[in-house]
């Protein structure tokens, strides 16, 4: 049984799809994020490196996750992430699925407020750029888990 700070969460926690973007082959980020989520009691479907947009969509349609976590560090994450969420949101079944993105999203270091605003405007519930630390992410996921259980 998983109890987050005494509040009831489904026994298996959230079902989370963890994914890279199509151009990005970095995986240590995915390995660590998977452990972080599992240690919080959630179920992770790690899609691995270089996930083609279509594969990501079809896996999400199949798994119907409670949360989609996009992680990218190769510097293409901002553009790949925008392209990806437009496709996700165009599917009625996934139009409301919470989706967040994080990592090193641009090639020139952390982006400006405007680029973060573009990502949230496109539908990302939160943007965790390098340097924000994992605590903010952990509390976001915690809030989501509670919100879902109540």
């Amino acid at each position: 049984m998983n109890h987050a700070e005494g509040l009831e969460v489904s026994a298996d926690g959230l079902s989370v799809v963890l994914t890279s973007v199509s151009s990005d082959s970095h995986t240590w980020n995915l390995v660590v994020l998977q452990l972080v989520l599992e240690e919080l009691g959630h179920q992770v479907h790690n899609l691995g490196a270089c996930v083609p947009d279509e594969l990501m969509i079809s896996e999400c349609l199949r798994l119907r996750p409670d949360l989609i976590v996009v992680s990218s560090v190769n510097g293409h994450g901002f553009h790949d992430g925008l392209r990806l969420i437009r496709q996700v949101r165009s599917r009625a079944e996934l139009a409301g699925t919470p989706m967040v993105i994080g990592g090193k999203l641009g090639i020139a270091g952390p982006g400006c407020d405007r680029s973060r605003a573009q990502l949230t405007a496109a539908g990302y519930g939160a943007v965790f750029e390098d340097g924000t630390g994992l605590t903010a992410f952990q509390s976001y996921v915690g809030r989501l888990a509670i919100g879902q259980a109540s």
Partner: peptide, 8 residues
């Protein structure tokens, strides 16, 4: 770049 690497 990463796109060229993937053949994209």
């Amino acid at each position: 770049d990463s796109y060229t690497r993937m053949g994209d």
